[in-house]
């Protein structure tokens, strides 16, 4: 049963994130929802690389036992870095949106004709 806990957490994180993106009106909360999805996917990648009772893949001469897979960790690291860049860009756009619209309600930020 304990084996399944991370996968349940992954599904829960992604669903919570999607819920926030779809049903929350505040743009900041939508951005938080996207980071939830990202956390879920990253957790999923890390979990895939873990083997039972394994050690961290950082030794040149291993003290014995199996190592967890290093590749998903490298992937996760890349994904986290990209995620930070996307997050920063989204938040800076939210700042600009607030300057123009004076609100962060997603239902009011719908475009339309200029002036």
């Amino acid at each position: 049963m304990a084996f399944y806990v991370p996968y349940i957490a992954v599904v829960a994180l992604i669903l919570i994130g999607l819920y926030a993106v779809v049903f929350k009106r505040n743009l900041i909360k939508i951005v938080i929802g996207i980071t939830f999805i990202e956390c879920g996917v990253n957790l999923f990648l890390i979990t895939l690389g873990y083997r039972e009772k394994s050690i961290a893949p950082i030794y040149t001469s291993s003290p014995g036992g199996i190592m967890s897979l290093p590749v998903p960790q490298a992937l996760t690291l890349t994904s986290i870095v990209i995620g930070v860049a996307v997050l920063a860009l989204m938040l800076s756009l939210v700042v600009h949106i607030y300057r123009h619209y004076k609100t962060l309600d997603a239902r009011k930020i719908i475009g339309g004709d200029e002036e």
Partner: peptide, 9 residues
Amino acid sequence: KQNSIQAAF
């Protein structure tokens, strides 16, 4: 322009 900002978001 507010429209290009919201489109980018």
